[in-house]
Write a protein that binds this DNA or RNA. Structure first.
Lengths: 335, 335
DNA sequence: GGATCGCCGTCATACGTATTACCGAACCAG
DNA sequence: CTGGTTCGGTAATACGTATGACGGCGATCC
């Protein structure tokens, strides 16, 4: 608490020798034919002199809007969600909105004081990668769901922006099939989110449609060592796969480790694919063939939809296609 | 805008058949001897029935506090700052505070509408990795600076939480020297932040203090390909270094690529070190020797200091030591 | 039995802003 | 000179909450 409290519009009024209403009119920009240019200048300079900044709480109360939206993501520690925030914040800022982040309380080990961040004053919520239950908390608040599955959606219609993960996975399977692969291993994330279910399903369907196609699967946490172990299980099992399809770039890094430990060269002896195309994908050796999910675009489009919704429109659902990015981790199988 | 607006405390009062003041007293928990238990129960159940949630804007206005702090970070797209947020948010939540994030406007390509996110109502600000100029915007708002240099600090005393990056860099140099290295290459981030200046300085001093020590340097952006090129320049120059000290784990990934392109094995032919110990460090092959900077702890300690400051105390400056983590990317030089 | 006291609650107000309704003066036409 | 119109500005109010001042009422005490 500063020794001297912030100046209010009343202080500015006194300084300028006018009334508070006039100050508000001038600073609000609505003084077409209400205030003389001279007075306006006077008010502005007084405000400048005092370093006046309007009290947001009072504005919010008066206007009934906070121009702030809540972005709910599972975590910001994973590499994927930073860009989502960046995209969302960019378009929000362009419309004079702020973004407050709330992470999913999986780390809510402490006293469960505040369900989501704190009980903010929010105009809307952008919920990423989570089930409908979480939104119940915000009943009545306009919301847009990001990267969610059909099952996750509440009964009432909530606009959505999704990735075309199934198409992405089909593209991967197609790419590998074209190279000649038939025996696939799926290193799957043991996470109960729609996006992973969709990936698994799409891969299974694609392999099933392939003459002579075979698919084995191992589950792991989204974490390098867990992924390495799962991949090793697949590679040491019967009928070793010639390609490992990973649910995630980080998991692919684990697959690299397993391959190396077994003396298998990627991609000569084993093809590996990732998903998401985070920074890591190009940092690995060899660079990873993966599906690029435009995370920043997801945030941007989601925010656009939410702002539409706040403006009274009903944005149509959108699907952002994932793009297959072929790099150096895939090649025809040996022999 | 929902068809029916949110219920207010007045609505709850009507539902419960009491006055608004009573509702506020009960829900505020300050009804020791003011309200009978029966009435309190009644009010609570009415609030529950209507799904009442207090209007934060009104609370904020009345109480003069928002219980919200602003976290300023350069970006959330880089892997380092996510954990900073996580740590800060964790301790904030524990004290009933919310966190709103604002990223540094390096991507403020659009109209520079809003200087920082939007002009939020803030109790305090936590500024990470930035110069004092940015804080000028918030003159009068309690602030804590994170990972800042002595030069960055404003004249008035602002509490700080820093990393011991110089010690960390000395640890790296010592580790490499002990392995027998004498010719060092520094792949340096071309970023004008104190932390990188400090790293360069500490490395230079350490090498200078080493009999027969030699140091060359190349600058690059924090980006794999740029780092690869810079590393390649060092490795193809005269008196090739036997160890590359990188300012950052991501840069180290670039160094790996350069080494591989030149047919050099890490660590047999070339030792490589990183800095920060982000997820990437253990995803790489070989796993990266680096200095662990406890990013989450930085956020947590910074928030603790800020809350102290808001409570009227003067938190002492803190320094979080970086810890050398020796993995598989360093070895004695050949020969 | 009347004054006092504790218990339960309500009234009124203030926080700082945006906006609507209003009002005096000046100006203009007739 | 008068009635209307425009210009330039002010007074008043509402947003929803928290809280200090106040008051009714039954019980208690002498």
């Amino acid at each position: 608490m500063p020794a001297v409290s912030r100046p209010t519009s009343k202080d500015v009024a006194q300084e300028a020798g006018v009334s508070q209403s006039t100050v508000s009119l001038v600073l609000g920009g609505k003084w077409s034919g209400r205030v003389s240019p001279a007075t306006a200048r006077n008010v502005r300079s007084a405000a400048e002199r005092l370093g006046y900044r309007p009290n947001q709480a009072a504005r919010n109360l008066r206007l009934g809007t906070t121009r702030t939206v809540l972005l709910m993501v599972p975590t910001l520690s994973a590499p994927f969600f930073g860009p989502v925030y960046t995209g969302a914040a960019r378009v929000a800022a362009r419309h004079g909105f702020g973004v407050v982040v709330s992470t999913w309380p999986d780390d809510a080990a402490g006293p469960a004081d505040s369900p989501f961040g704190s009980d903010e004053a929010i105009d809307g919520v952008l919920a990423s990668s989570m089930a409908a239950g979480a939104l119940a908390e915000f009943r009545g608040t306009p919301a847009v769901m990001l990267d969610s599955g059909p099952d996750d959606r509440p009964g009432d219609r909530v606009p959505t922006v999704d990735f075309g993960v199934a198409d992405g996975m089909r593209a991967i399977a197609g790419h590998l099939a074209e190279l000649g692969h038939r025996r696939f291993g799926h290193v799957a994330a043991a996470v109960d989110q729609w996006t992973f279910h969709a990936r698994a399903e799409a891969l299974a369907a694609a392999v099933a449609g392939l003459p002579g196609g075979a698919l084995t699967r191992a589950r792991c946490a989204i974490d390098v060592t867990s992924a390495r172990d799962a991949a090793a299980r697949l590679l040491t099992g019967p009928a070793r796969p010639t390609a490992l399809v990973c649910d995630d770039d980080l998991i692919a890094a684990g697959a690299y480790k397993a391959a190396r430990a077994l003396g298998l060269d990627v991609p000569a002896d084993l093809s590996v694919t990732g998903f998401d195309d985070v920074l890591l994908a190009t940092a690995l050796e060899p660079e990873l063939t993966t599906v690029r999910l435009p995370a920043e675009e997801l945030g941007a489009q989601g925010m656009t939809a939410l702002l539409d919704l706040l403006a009274g429109h009903r944005p149509a659902p959108r699907v952002l296609p994932g793009e297959l990015v072929v790099r150096d981790s895939t090649a025809p199988p040996r022999g």
